[in-house]
């Protein structure tokens, strides 16, 4: 039986979380199909068919799927579900919005935020904000999973040559209507895709001081993140938040500046390969997880760091 992956995209490009999900799928079995549901999303289809390990790309290109609303996309997935034993989506806000509807319509469970594949029916997922790790087994006929991108390496974005199949189903969403979107504009890499992240916490003092981090971020090609404390204090917008209630990241290098290290923040970044903490409080819990800790005033240390890179 084949595995279906719901592509994460914005009608213009395939998002990298899809590649991590492909890796999870190839650990379950062969014959991985990707569904691209969107509008004028031909580039995404091109990109998806080149991903190594993908054998078929299903295309539903219609104005009704432009904003990938959960109501109709879930019904589209259910219409093709009988050919699949596994249905996977990245655990992004889009995947989390849509896939539980698919599971409910199929009368099966959804396993959320899978970080490891043990076998075709047994999966590992964090619970209690990552303070416990559950291994679960399902005997459902169709296994519906959201996949946490940081748990799996990205599949190669080239090397594949999947066949394409056009889906003709047009399912309208009558009672849910897209009004508007306000996306943060940035030249920096996306938080969940960045190799280097520099994050600020309450210690930054105010929003203007986040400019200090930009210099370092420019030199390292890093994304900028924040703790929940900094977001709640209104220093930066909430889409920068790293943590249990924000984004889960696992870059090669994570630099925490003025962040105390609350459990909720650690849950979002403790899988980073190398963690650096800069904090003037030497008892801050962040130092217990940091590979390199520097006890210093961030207002001295960060400009100096920028100069020495």
């Amino acid at each position: 039986m084949s595995i279906l992956i719901i592509a994460e995209h914005d009608n213009k490009s395939l998002k990298s979380a899809t590649l991590n999900t492909v890796t999870a799928a190839t650990q379950i079995g062969a014959d991985v199909h990707v569904l691209v549901a969107g509008f004028e999303c031909q580039t995404v289809v091109e990109q998806a068919s080149q991903v190594a390990g993908v054998t078929k790309v299903l295309v539903a290109d219609n104005a009704v799927y432009e904003h990938q609303l959960a109501e109709n996309v879930s019904k589209l997935i259910v219409e093709i579900a009988s050919s699949y034993e596994h249905i996977l989506a990245p655990a992004t806000t889009t995947g989390k919005n849509t896939l539980p509807r698919v599971a409910a319509l199929l009368n099966v469970a959804q396993l959320s935020d899978v970080i490891k594949v043990e076998s075709a029916d047994t999966f590992v997922r964090p619970i209690y904000a990552g303070n416990a790790i559950a291994t679960v087994k399902t005997t459902d006929a169709v296994k519906v999973l959201t996949v946490r991108a940081t748990g799996f390496d990205a599949a190669a974005s080239t090397g594949g040559s999947a066949e394409r199949q056009v889906l003709s189903q047009v399912i309208a969403s009558d009672r849910s209507r897209f009004v508007k979107e306000q996306l943060a504009e940035s030249d920096r890499p996306e938080l969940t895709a960045a190799n280097v992240i520099i994050s600020g916490g309450r210690g930054m003092g105010n929003g203007d001081n986040f400019k200090l981090l930009e210099g370092v971020a420019d030199k390292l090609g890093a994304a900028i993140g924040a703790s929940r404390a900094a977001v709640d204090a209104g220093y930066v917008p909430n889409d920068l938040q790293v943590g249990q209630t924000g984004k889960t990241v696992a870059p090669d290098l994570y630099i925490a500046v003025g962040i105390s290290g609350a459990i909720q923040h650690l849950a979002g970044m403790k899988d980073s390969k190398v963690i650096v903490a800069i904090n003037k409080d030497e008892d801050a819990p962040i130092f217990q997880v940091a590979d390199y800790g520097l006890v210093a005033d961030l207002f001295d240390a960060v400009p100096e760091l920028e100069k020495s890179l």
Partner: peptide, 29 residues
């Protein structure tokens, strides 16, 4: 149809070292 096989504590991250200066930090990185 879902059963729990096991619930375990998360892997602990070994604490690292403290560095004395920005220069030492950059050198280590």
């Amino acid at each position: 149809n879902v059963s729990i096989v096991s619930v375990t504590p998360p892997p602990q991250r070994a604490g690292g070292i403290k560095v004395g200066s920005v220069a030492e930090l950059v050198d280590k990185l």
